[in-house]
Structure formats: structure tokens, C-alpha cells
Design a protein around this nucleic acid. Structure first.
Lengths: 341, 341
DNA sequence: CTGAAAGCGCTTACAG
DNA sequence: CTGAAAGCGCTTACAG
């Protein structure tokens, strides 16, 4: 530690007050006279007094640091969530430690443990896709407040902040029906993906509500959804006797692969086959035709998650009601389903 | 603090040893017998002992936390740098606090100060483009180790980690010359942007070395480089009597705007006008034609920055040699300059 | 309205 | 090889 650092002790000596009084004055304790407060604060200011965060944290066993765990920081949607988290946290006087699980279950467990032992006041986590077994991370949830966002699990008792994937997918399919499509394929993830399942449920529901046939042949599940897989699965769909007239890919990345393959075969988008993605990545306006997709409110999601987490941290009761907050996302219609003339 | 937490005191009581011995055993102090060490470690393990990071940090006035400041976390290149930072830091036993300046000079100063007072051991920062006056952030650099990366300033005495922008730009221009281009335009930022200036210097040098005319009319400077500006500036370039036969945009975003505008006017890329960007964003493979660009080693840059920062933090001398580390980036040739048949 | 004192959990110079 | 004790900078119950 640099010498010359201003401490309560130094201030108290100069002012001929006790350390306790100085501490209380700085913390606006009601017992202290306005006069004293003023003189203390003035001196503190002029001497650039900054409380030692570690002494403080140590004393109160509170760090004012939030831990955040995401699968990958370069994932665009997650980076917008992080933006919201940073902003809200900083407004509330909290700092944010970020870690990545790299979509690896082992790393995820390790990171959660390290965050915990690093003394964060609470954790905001988005799980890896492959998180089937939650046993190894469950203990963390009983040690400190943890809130899950986006990639959540319903095997874990905690507050969850998500977007209305089911409804959004329902709207996607209704939009496709509205533009005259009748044979709507979906490219989704095979299993364990909470979000994919929700979107699939919305898809099924919309088909049923509109009395459209549900055909297993155009319901495609892949292990790891990606642009590559989008391409590959489109080839499969095109090889069917009865081709679909629309393809709903569960992610923008896959939807872009779909478009690229359709273009390769000179299939007219959206006239022959319409395409919809999910997430409104930057890419979705670069691809031609521009991609109809679902815009998810990343920043708002991040901010909301922070609000609920801090509420839990600062609440005095031990009984916490776990809520599931669903934020509205919105359909963005672009050229891949409907071209304005 | 939860009750039931294992502390050194508890361990010492159970083992009938002093707290000091337990502490030393856990820290592998040479004075302690192997026997004692073993039994202490065993018990600590079985009781899930985790050192209180705040007591430790407080005691040693070291937090093992690095502060990172970037203009925007959603910026793709920076998010890859962050990935590298997180990985390297976690390997070295450090955690990372991330903040954004939102490209705002005031927020930048504030964030640097907060990081400092939050007791981070050192800071990694990438400055806002508009950082002309560094007076307000200079004090931070004398308080603790700070390393600048990517968006640096040479008005600040510190270690800098950057990519070889000048050389990379030189290579871009040489590549354009090699494919037969003679009238190469550049779209750059107006001022104060360290990176833009470097790239511009490389551009000028390559033209001179190849005896090509430097024509002010095709050297375009914009305030805030973006896709929009790329479009607008292309319109200007196309309105010239003597059109360029290649456009080098200082960022991928702008280059994409360039391509979109050229396509609007049915100009053949690269035959009539070739286009090059900078950074190798995800977008650069989505746009058609795919974009020739410069790939910058984001993760390596992040890791390197962490290495140098930790070296400074852990060095015992007060005299630190400030270095400037330049990492190699590489030209990625795609369809916007050269189409494989 | 103010102060003296204890204590948060750890490390480490000093002593043996 | 081990222990007693001091102290890091802060907050807060207790006393006046």
C-alpha cells in the first residue's frame, strides 16, 4: 500500500476527534452534529480520503461486487445483457466480476465456486446449453443469492429472468401464416436447451391453433446449432418430396446458413421459402435478404436481473420468494419474409 | 456472514495448533513440518475451508482483482480481447472487473477512479476515441499499474499493447496494388484516433513506395466512422470525375457500408472497385461479396496485456520500463478484392 | 452528541 | 518447528 494514503485515523488526529466520530460523520450517522459532519467531510474531501474497500468489506462481510457467469462473452446477445448489467450495477454502487464458462460444464462449476469464494455478494448466471445435471452447482445456490438469466434451468430453485420465447415463437409462426405460408419447418436444438424447447412449444401451439398439420419430417433437431448446421439442415429440407414453404431457425446464425443455402439453389426468398431467425444479431441486417427475426431486450434483461439480485442481497429476510420474470421481445419483420415494394 | 464458515481459528482449535501454524501450513511455509502441513491441509479440505478473501486482501493490501475499461463491451473486437483477458487472468489467479466508458470521456475518468478506489491491483484500459486531453486520467497512472491496449495514447507514460496497424495497412495497400489497382481511396477518422492515424500512415507509405500518386480527393476523413458514414462517403467518391478503383475503409463497419452502396449502383466488386475493411468482424463473412480485411489477434492481445500487467503488479521495483508491444495481424483475402474462380 | 474498545480473519516479525 | 501478539482500517454496541 502506498504511504500517504488518507485513513480515518489520520483525519481524526488532524480534527482532534475520535476515529469513531469521523467514521460516523462520513456515514451520515444521525447522532453526529451537522457542524462536525461538515468539517469532517470537508477535510476528507481535501485530503482525497477514499475508504479502504477491503477493510470495509471485511468488516461488514459485504463486497459490493456482483459475479456474472456467461457461456461466452463474445456472444452478441449476451454482450448486450452484460452492458445492461454493468450500467445498472454501477448506478447502484456495485462492481461486476465477469467470468466465462466457455460452454463447458466443468468450467462452469469451477467458475461459480471461485466467484463464491471471491466474496461476491451475489451471482448472475446464464448456464451452458449442456447443463443437464445441476447437482454440482446446486450447493452454490444455498450459499448466496444467485439469479439465472436467459439460459436457465427449472431444476434450480431461484429467481429467473428470461424473455418470452414461447410467445415470440408463436408470433413468428403466426406471421408466417399471415403471409400465406402453410408448411413451416423448424430447426431447433436437440435437447436440454431451455430456450429451444420454449420456442418449439410456441411453434407447435401456433400450428395447432391455426389447424396446420404438424409434420415430423420438417421438424429438425440438431446437436449444436450454428451457421454450418443451418446450411446442412437446409439441404436436408430441400431434399424432401414436400418441401417447406418457410423455415424458422431457432437462432440467427442458423437462419443465415439457411439463407445462404437457399440462395445457392436460387430459391426465391421469401416467395418460395421464407426464413425467420431469432435474436436480432448485427448479422441479420447484413445478410441479403435481410432477416426477419425476434429482437430480445438484452440491456433491459441485464438491468432487471441486477435489480432483483440486489433486492435479494439487501433484503433482511431469509425467505426469498423466487420469481420468474418474463420480458417481452418483439418480431422484426424484414425482407426474408416480407419485402416492402 | 453465514455461520458455520470454516476459519483458521476453528481449524486451529480442532487440531490443537495455533492459528499462526495453521496459516503457515496452508501457505506452505518452509518452517512447518511436512507432517503438520499434511494434517492441516487434510482437515481444511474436509471442512471446506476457503480463505476469507477480504481478510487476506485487507491484510496484504492486494486484491487479486484486475480492472478493465473498454469503450463498449458489445464491440466485437474488444469482446475477443476481453475473452483473452479473462482466460489469462483466471489462469494466474486473478479476477477481472469490467467497466465501460461508453466512449464518453467523463465516464472514462469516473470509471478509472472508481476502479482505483475499489482496490484493484492494476488496470487494463482501452481509451475512448475522443480522448485528446489526458490530464484528467493522468493521476490514475501514478497510483497503480495501468496498461493501455488497442486504443492507446502516446501522451501517457505506460506500457502499451497494440497491433501493427501501420504495417497491416501497408500490406492492405500492397495487396490492392498487386491485383492491379492504381487509384486507392481511404476512408479514415478525422483526428485523435491513434489507430486511424497509424493505418493512414501505412497507406501513405505504401503508395509512396510504389510510386503511386497521393490524391487528397480520395482521402476521406469522417468524424465518427460507421456503416452509415461508409455509405455516405462512397456516394461522394462515386461522384468524383476520377473514381477510385479501390476503397480501403479503416473499419469493417464502414467497408460494409461501402459495399452496400457500390452494389446499389451495380458497380462490380472487385473488378471495378475493390473493397477492404479492418478487424475481421463476423459480418465480414456475411456480406456479399465477402470482405477482405485484417484479422487482429484479439485473444492474444488480451492475454499479452494481462501478462505485462501482472508482471508490473508483482514486480518489487518501483522503476518500471514502459514498453510498446506490437502484435502481428494478418490480411484475410476474400471476394471483395480477389475472387477465386 | 462523542469516545474507548472490541473485533472482523488473516499474516508475520519476534521470541523461543 | 511452533506460538503469542500486534496490526491491517473500518464499524458499532456500549457507555457516558
Amino acid at each position: 500500500m502506498k504511504k500517504g494514503v488518507t485513513t480515518l485515523k489520520k483525519l481524526s488526529k488532524i480534527l482532534n476527534l475520535s476515529v469513531s466520530t469521523v467514521s460516523r460523520a462520513l456515514n451520515d450517522h444521525p447522532d453526529i452534529s451537522d457542524e462536525t459532519k461538515e468539517s469532517v467531510k470537508k477535510l476528507a474531501q481535501s485530503m482525497n480520503y477514499v475508504p479502504n474497500i477491503f477493510a470495509k468489506g471485511f468488516r461488514k462481510s459485504k463486497s459490493n461486487i456482483l459475479g456474472v457467469l456467461v457461456p461466452s462473452i463474445t456472444h452478441y446477445f449476451h454482450s448486450t445483457i452484460l452492458k445492461g448489467i454493468l450500467e445498472e450495477a454501477s448506478m447502484k454502487g456495485y462492481r461486476v466480476i465477469i467470468s466465462e464458462s466457455n460452454n463447458d460444464v466443468l468450467q462452469q462449476t469451477e467458475m461459480l465456486n471461485t466467484l463464491t469464494q471471491f466474496g461476491v455478494d451475489g451471482i448472475l448466471a446464464s448456464l451452458t446449453k449442456k447443463t443437464k445435471n445441476v447437482d454440482s452447482i446446486l450447493p452454490v445456490f444455498s450459499k448466496l443469492p444467485v439469479i439465472l438469466f436467459d439460459k436457465v434451468s427449472n431444476k434450480i430453485p431461484c429467481t429467473r429472468i428470461i424473455t418470452n420465447d414461447e410467445e415470440a415463437a408463436y408470433n413468428v409462426v403466426e406471421h408466417l401464416i399471415n403471409i400465406g405460408k402453410k408448411r413451416i419447418a423448424i430447426i431447433k436444438e436437440r435437447e436440454f436447451s431451455y430456450n429451444s424447447e420454449k420456442r418449439y412449444t410456441g411453434y407447435l401451439k401456433a400450428l395447432k391453433d391455426n389447424n396446420l398439420e404438424i409434420d415430423e419430417k420438417i421438424i429438425i433437431s440438431v446437436d449444436d446449432i450454428s451457421q454450418q448446421q443451418g446450411k446442412r439442415m437446409t439441404n436436408i429440407l430441400l431434399s424432401l418430396k414436400q418441401r417447406p414453404d418457410a423455415i424458422f431457425a431457432i437462432t440467427d446464425g442458423a437462419a443465415i446458413g439457411v439463407i445462404q443455402t437457399l440462395k445457392k439453389f436460387n430459391i426465391k426468398i421469401p416467395e418460395e421459402i421464407a426464413v425467420v431467425g431469432f435474436s436480432n444479431n448485427i448479422n441479420s441486417t447484413i445478410i441479403e435478404p435481410t432477416l426477419t427475426t425476434v429482437d430480445q431486450p438484452g440491456e433491459t434483461l441485464g438491468k432487471t436481473a441486477v435489480k432483483y439480485l440486489i433486492e435479494e442481497i439487501e433484503s433482511n429476510t431469509d425467505i426469498v420468494m423466487h420469481k420468474t420474470i418474463e420480458l417481452k421481445s418483439s418480431l422484426i419483420i424484414r425482407d426474408s419474409t416480407f419485402r416492402a415494394k
